[in-house]
């Protein structure tokens, strides 16, 4: 067990417990942005590096989960800007397509999934964030509101608008074909 002790006992941070408790949630948060397991795991690691850097002031943090999710989200966004997200989106879409169907149908399905991911990226920033955080299904509305810095009713409205806009855009794309 890794224990980072500081000057006083109150400042002790049991990193192993933090990793055990939050790493899966943080992985999903990072994965929802990056859609790559390897990249998401690197982000989770970076989050805990930040925790160590901040270990002296962790007492000031009241909502550890919210704080960690925010860090993970920001680090994942940073990483997405640096890597090639289209390739990762395409391989994630392929992984979603059912393997039991014939190859041509599978390809078609993967393309549909890719289209959804592309439209998700085109959503306004706040709508996209709320939609992805809600997809994880591990954060309540109150926690999501804290993460995005809005009220709970604003979060519900953003989520509704995100789904509506996404559906409309996908239908419009389908109609164009």
């Amino acid at each position: 067990m890794v224990l980072f002790a500081t000057e006083s006992a109150r400042e002790e941070v049991d990193l192993a417990t933090l990793v055990e408790t939050y790493s899966r949630l943080l992985f999903r948060v990072a994965h929802s942005v990056l859609r790559s397991r390897a990249e998401a795991e690197d982000v989770v690691q970076d989050v805990f590096v930040r925790v160590i850097e901040r270990r002296r002031s962790l007492r000031e943090i009241r909502e550890m989960q919210v704080w960690l999710v925010r860090i993970a989200w920001n680090l994942a966004l940073d990483r997405r800007r640096r890597v090639r997200p289209v390739q990762m989106d395409d391989s994630f879409a392929e992984s979603l397509a059912a393997s039991s169907v014939p190859a041509d149908e599978r390809l078609c399905e993967a393309q549909r999934m890719s289209a959804v991911l592309r439209e998700m990226e085109r959503l306004p920033k706040a709508e996209r964030q709320v939609l992805l955080l809600a997809a994880i299904e591990e954060l309540g509305t109150a926690e999501m509101a804290q993460v995005v810095g809005r009220s709970e009713s604003a979060v519900r409205a953003l989520l509704f608008r995100a789904r509506t806009r996404l559906r409309e855009r996908l239908e419009a794309r389908g109609g164009e074909r």
């Binding site: 992985f27 929802s32 979603l96 289209a115 959804v116 997809a135 994880i136 559906r167 389908g174």
Partner: peptide, 16 residues
């Protein structure tokens, strides 16, 4: 179709 596709993608993200 689009609802279904959205649901599938979101479920994929949830189950990652």
């Amino acid at each position: 179709n689009s609802e279904e596709a959205i649901g599938k993608v979101l479920a994929g993200l949830r189950d990652a």
